[in-house]
Design a binder for these strands. Sequence first.
DNA 1: TTCCTAACTGAGTACTCAGTCAGTTTCGGA
DNA 2: TCCGAAACTGACTGAGTACTCAGTTAGGAA
Lengths: 193, 193
Amino acid sequence: MNKKDAILEAANLLFARKGFKDTSMAEVSKLTGAAEGTIFYHFKTKEGIFLSILEKVKEDITAEFTAYRQAREFRNGLEMMEGAIGFYLHQVSQMEDRFLILYRHYPYELARTNPRCRDNLIAIYECLLDIFEEAIVAGQQDGSIRPGPSRKTAMLVFAMLDGLVRLKIYNLYDAASLYGELLTVCQRILKNP
Amino acid sequence: MNKKDAILEAANLLFARKGFKDTSMAEVSKLTGAAEGTIFYHFKTKEGIFLSILEKVKEDITAEFTAYRQAREFRNGLEMMEGAIGFYLHQVSQMEDRFLILYRHYPYELARTNPRCRDNLIAIYECLLDIFEEAIVAGQQDGSIRPGPSRKTAMLVFAMLDGLVRLKIYNLYDAASLYGELLTVCQRILKNP
DNA sequence: TTCCTAACTGAGTACTCAGTCAGTTTCGGA
DNA sequence: TCCGAAACTGACTGAGTACTCAGTTAGGAA
């Protein structure tokens, strides 16, 4: 791995675990073995590093979820939805450092003034919501999921997942032990009676 | 209002809107009109200010929700639950600066090392979850809500609310326009068929 | 009025941080 | 082998930062 990528990886790890403000360039330098000067040779500013990381986060997440979407086959929309929920939770722990970036305040603060940041965030959330919505629409067509506003329902399910992951991140409750109940609840929300 | 309380209010506002790390004591001093020395006369450290604020957040939130719990009467548990959801969303915008503290990373990071912080956070979440759970248990007794693990269900509903509020805070989607669908979804989760 | 204490002040301190720059090393092509 | 450019270095800078402290003011009791 070249030094530029090593810097991005180290910064991603630190930003994810300690946050943007609480990570100093000295720490990134130490973790990569690159001098501070080298970091600023490759990136103009600390914010620039963050933007490059977010770009990578977007690419990785959209790639993973797009691949999943195309590969898996399901008997119906409802099972597709359950699969998507499981896959999301799986990916959150698999690509923990990528997702932890999104579970912090900084990207959304930056998005207010920086359009590139905003565009990347929107792309990520669109991609995730699209998968849930696609499953709902499919389910509504095959009759496994009841009719209703597909996008809004997708958002509510996603909001629940998001809230659940946060409970775990914040050490308030272990999300895993809620997984069974989560699926039951989602079935109740979606299943065509 | 005495100066000590004024400092707490100003710091609360700034911590809520800009975050703990991004708020300097100089800013707090400017907003209150108190000299920096005065701030450190009343509080040992910046972290100490935060802990006092969190204490106040806990007191305010538990007071509001306990009052609500005792005052309102409902025809059944399901309506009680719907009322609680509406009240939560109402309170989040009513006491915005109090809740925004909780929607940041810092308190949960501090909670890892500071038991006082941890205790306050737990007290807040226990109080909120208790209200939802109380409604569920009541509903299960009067037959309006289907049987099931009340605490876990309360958590999932709360996680959805939490996720929804975040969508709004992060400027990703307006939670208000999902309110109708939210209630429908909650009914499906809870209603005894 | 006197005196003590609590409240308050802001210049000062020691430190951290993002970002710079003059100089060195590495490397690929001629 | 030489050359030029790209990659890399780390000491340095200047702008913050949380917190201190010697001194001033306000308030209340004797």
